[in-house]
Nucleic acid binder design. Structure first.
Lengths: 228, 228
DNA sequence: ACTCGAACGAGAGCACCGCTCTCGTCGAGA
DNA sequence: TCTCGACGAGAGCGGTGCTCTCGTTCGAGT
């Protein structure tokens, strides 16, 4: 059971993180100032260091929270009773919607890493949640016979254990070629969202919604989902 | 003809930009310090402002130079005499190689935009070079009958004029569905490179070279290139 | 119940940053 | 030759991350 001191410490820690998240949403990660956060919560800047050893640690907290937030949004959007194609497009839309609602947080998660900053191991589980949802859709589709597989096999040394475990595990309809296509679809999804968010498609795409719908359908075809 | 004064001014401008590029390669964009650049070229920091009105203008110069550099690399890698599939994979590899050789520059170009920074119009032509090469490959393939098109048509309001002009123009084998797939392949290419560079694929992909080769082949299939 | 040490908040200070202003110099065109 | 603009240097302003020191306060062990 936590003592009173630990409780108020935890409260203050989340209060600082919340203020930091508000500032992140306003000015972005690179302009996030620990001193301004301290001002917002009414502390001396030096006092914040009792709770976060450095600005990078504060950012790490925001990164983990961000991965958890987009992971939760994606999980909530995945209706496991729906057919794979619909689940796939729902998950894609959830990613895009979350990114558009939280552009600075998205940039912090999937944009250029802050220079000199290396993600601690703590971020890995939270960061995996989106990929795990995709893997679950893939696995369910394979079990339901809704996945067009090559029926090939493993290509040793190509993929890591994490990818194999998440993507289909040992199901015969999911070989390494399918896994590569799934990773490609995942990368393409985030590439598309990033391009839209970072303005790389300005002048080329007029109707972002329609374009994105076509892209998700194309990616579903690539992964191998097929209608019942 | 430029006066001596203009000449030495231009020289000093590029010398500052070169020093900034060196520092960019070392510490990244967010940590790029105008004062440090000034120290490297042996000036007072205030003197640099005679050549670049602000740090953002210096970054803009680096961005334009970066787009030109990756554009030149891609153009050099495109052998117009080769079959479309080979040209496509060569261009993809050129993008990846340039990105791995200049990670901080790549992050500056295709990562999160520096907060508060909006790309001036000057950057657009340089930024378009890579896309133009892709469009040229697509158009050549269509003219040579090496492109599997839907034979559909335009979808008004979906794509911008820039995309239509660069991607296939009016060739019947290139309709808007093909253009969407080309844009998707373009986004997927940069999504893949970004994920590799920013560490999002750590643990999932062991052999980056083989994975990338498979990805480019898959994307070529997606775009519709077919062997002779 | 008391004590002692750890946790805490505040303040001053260091080195650095982007940027502005002023001032002396120097050189090219009128 | 004179003049005015371009130039470089320096000081300075407000901001940053981070450290150190100093009282205070609170809680756990005796």
């Amino acid at each position: 059971m936590p003592t009173a001191r630990e409780r108020v410490r935890a409260e203050l820690t989340t209060e600082i993180a919340d203020a930091a998240r508000r500032q992140l949403a306003e000015v972005g990660a690179a302009a996030l100032s620990l001193r301004a956060v301290a001002r917002e919560v009414g502390m001396a800047s030096s006092a914040v260091y009792r709770y976060f050893p450095s600005r990078d640690d504060l950012l790490t907290r925001l990164i983990i929270d961000g991965y958890d937030a987009i992971g939760a949004a994606v999980e909530a959007a995945d209706d496991t009773a729906a057919p794979p194609e619909e689940r796939w497009s729902a998950v894609c839309s959830a990613v895009r919607d979350w990114a558009r609602a939280h552009p600075h947080e998205y940039a912090l998660l999937y944009g250029s890493p802050v220079p000199g900053y290396v993600a601690p191991r703590d971020t890995v589980p939270a960061a995996s949640r989106v990929g795990i949802v995709l893997g679950r859709i893939l696995g369910d589709a394979a079990r339901a016979g809704r996945l067009t597989g090559d029926g090939g096999g493993r290509e040793p040394g190509l993929l890591g254990d994490a990818a194999v475990e998440v993507l289909g595990q040992g199901h015969p309809a999911v070989d390494d070629a399918v896994r590569v296509r799934a990773l490609l679809a995942w990368s393409a999804l985030f590439g598309t969202v990033s391009f839209e968010l970072f303005g790389q498609l300005v002048g080329s795409v007029e109707d972002g919604d329609r374009y994105f719908a076509l892209v998700t359908a194309e990616l579903a075809r690539l992964v191998g989902f097929r209608p019942a």
